[in-house]
């Protein structure tokens, strides 16, 4: 049975990763599960300098999902390399570094810095965080800016580049095409959806940031549709995410066109989810007599 998946020059032993921002820097969950079983570990978003993040409350639970407005708190490139890279480097599975910036130049500089580190599996360009006022989201909602970010990062590094698209657009197709045209090796779909919740007694927003990003099982059908749209437009691999909590969910993403998947919010409530998804995909392939996982990709039957 072949579960391996390629993203540019990177090969994953299986298609199941963990999503940025839901798995810290890897080490935190190492006490609860064997990270070397995963396809890849994707770390929390990093920009050039340290980021303090938003005030609390930063989260609110909603029906079958949650809102978050962390504000991309992080240690910056230097802090990350010093504190977290030694552990990630020691893993047998690739580490994907999620990066962002407030200017095209910053994105490129961060990409250059990680290129120089040696041993990084891939870079995931976060052009779509809804919780940062400057930068972040606007790169994901203007195809020209998106193209500029991808092109600049492409020049700055030979590492595989994954562009993480924003769902907050009328059609995802021009963004998927722009990323592909500028040399992105893959797409990640989807980031969280801009959303809001209000406490009806205090009449105050449940998040200090007022709005945040919606994630979890409630977004899954929307994510499936986004992947289906992008799949028909581009040839590069797509990493699908949005509410995955079982192997059945992961298979559905693959049938819609995802080559790989990432488990996000589910890590918070069931840290073993990604491992269960890998085991369940194996069972599914065996049961359906499928030798190569690639045969599932985009294999939804329309008639």
């Amino acid at each position: 049975m072949n579960l391996s998946v390629s993203i540019g020059k990177l090969t994953l032993q299986n298609p199941v990763m963990v999503a940025s921002g839901t798995f810290g820097y890897g080490a935190e969950y190492a006490r609860l599960l064997d990270l070397n079983q995963l396809g890849a570990v994707v770390v929390k978003g990093i920009r050039l300098t340290p980021v303090r993040g938003n005030p609390t409350p930063r989260t609110a639970e909603v029906t079958s999902g949650m809102l978050n407005a962390i504000g991309l708190q992080g240690p910056g490139v230097d802090g990350f390399i010093e504190k977290y890279w030694p552990f990630l480097k020691s893993l047998r599975v690739p580490a994907v570094i999620n990066i962002w910036g407030t200017t095209v130049e910053e994105y490129a500089e961060v990409a250059r810095r990680f290129d120089a580190v040696g041993g990084v599996g891939a870079l995931e360009l976060n052009v779509s965080c809804p919780n940062i006022k400057e930068g972040g989201a606007q790169f994901g909602t203007d195809p020209k800016l998106l193209a500029a970010v991808v092109a600049a990062c492409r020049k700055a590094t030979t590492l595989p580049l994954i562009t993480k698209l924003s769902p907050n657009v009328t059609s995802i197709v021009p963004y998927a095409l722009a990323a592909e045209a500028e040399g992105s090796d893959a797409l990640s779909i989807t980031n969280s959806f801009p959303a809001m919740a209000i406490d009806i007694e205090s009449r105050r927003p449940k998040l200090a940031n007022v709005t945040g990003g919606l994630t979890g099982p409630c977004i899954k059908p929307i994510a499936i549709k986004l992947i289906w749209d992008a799949r028909r437009a581009v040839k590069i691999p797509i990493i699908g995410m949005g509410g995955i909590q079982s192997a059945a969910d992961a298979v559905e993403f693959m049938l819609a066109g995802a080559n790989a998947v990432a488990v996000g919010t589910a890590n918070f409530y069931e840290p073993q989810t990604a491992l269960a998804v890998i085991a369940g995909i194996r069972d599914y392939l065996q049961w359906h007599n499928i030798e190569n996982i690639h045969d599932l990709v985009g294999a939804v039957r329309l008639s």
Binding site: G21, T22, F23, G24, E28, Y29, L32, K44, G53, T56, P57, R58, T59, A60, M66, N68, I70, Q73, T265, N267, F268, P271
Partner: peptide
């Protein structure tokens, strides 16, 4: 308020 409880999500700061 906490999501993960183990240090990965940065909600509880």
């Amino acid at each position: 308020h906490m999501c993960c409880g183990v240090g990965v999500c940065l909600t509880c700061v």
